[in-house]
Every structure is written in C-alpha cells, then in structure tokens.
C-alpha cells in the first residue's frame, strides 16, 4: 500500500491517460461509423450509397405522390427538381408534412432503390424550413424564406 509520491503521481497520470485514450478512440471510431450525411436526391442518384449507410435525405415532397395506406404506411417521393427518390415510411408524419413542402427524412436506401425512412422531419411553421432543405433547393423555382425554429419531427 505504501506507494511513493512518484508512484502515486504516475498512477494518477496513467489513469487520466487511459480515460483520455479511450475517449479519443471512441470519438474517432464513432466519427468514422456513426455520422449521418445529408444528401439530396441528386446525390443519391449519383453516389448510389450502400444500404448500410444511414442517410438524411432532404428535398421537396413531390406533388401528387403522397399515398397513405390504412395501416399507417406513408409513401411519397422526394425531389430536388433534378432527381426524385421514392420513400416509404411507417408511422405518423409531422403536422406540416404536405405535398409541395420541404421535408427531411432519415433512413437507408433499400436494395430496390426505395428509401426506407425511420424518421420524417418537416418544416415547423409557415416561416421555417430545415436549413438542409432550403439549401438543397437553392435552384428551385420558388424558395420559401428561412427562419429560426426547432424541427418538428416524427420517429416511430
């Protein structure tokens, strides 16, 4: 038990070093594996990401594409006016989810090319649209104003 002063200090430094190494290691691993990248429909068409990648898909809900099944499944297409991706989602969509409005969904691109979303985020009120959406539609015909409000969201 009788440690010298030097040993005690070394123990302390070793413990601190170990915690630091673990923390940095976890951060680096998480950064290489657990980040979700934002992509527009054009990005997905161009990059064809594998089904293992978790992706945030943002754009406009294309007019006339929303189909709500009785079991709570919602199908729609997300477009940035140069490419369109079909999306399927099971659950309740946010209050301001509507055709012709901005939307961000999170999920994976299936082998069939359909985007299986587990989260749907819509603009929060009449003045807000998620920054990613506003950005991906910079070339869109009409750009709604961007304001500041938290995201309204839905996740099953």
């Amino acid at each position: 038990m009788a440690m010298t002063r030097k040993q005690r200090r070394l123990t302390l430094i070793a413990a601190a070093g170990a915690v630091l190494v673990v923390a940095v290691g976890l951060l680096l691993f998480a950064m290489s594996n657990r980040l979700t990248f934002f992509q527009s429909p054009s990005d997905i068409v161009a990059l064809a990401p594998p089904p293992t990648d978790r992706i945030r898909l943002g754009g406009m809900v294309e007019e006339g594409t929303v189909v709500k099944d009785p079991d709570g499944t919602v199908r729609f297409s997300v477009t940035d006016f140069s490419a369109t991706i079909p999306v399927v989602y099971h659950g309740l969509v946010p209050d301001l989810f509507a055709e012709g409005k901005g939307v961000v969904t999170e999920g994976h691109v299936g082998a069939d090319g359909i985007f299986a979303a587990d989260t749907v985020l819509a603009r929060h009120d009449e003045n807000y649209m998620p920054p990613e959406v506003a950005r991906s539609m910079e070339n869109a015909p009409s750009l709604p104003p961007a304001g500041a409000a938290p995201l309204a969201s839905a996740t099953p």
Partner: peptide, 18 residues
C-alpha cells in the same frame, strides 16, 4: 460546407461506454 447530423448513434457509442 458538408452537412452532417450527429445523432443518437454517435452519442450512444461515445457517451455510453464512458
């Protein structure tokens, strides 16, 4: 200029083990 979102999977993997 790249947009990413750091969500629950990231924090579960870093904050959790600590």
């Amino acid at each position: 200029g790249r947009l990413i979102s750091v969500g629950p999977p990231f924090f579960n993997l870093t904050f959790g083990p600590l």
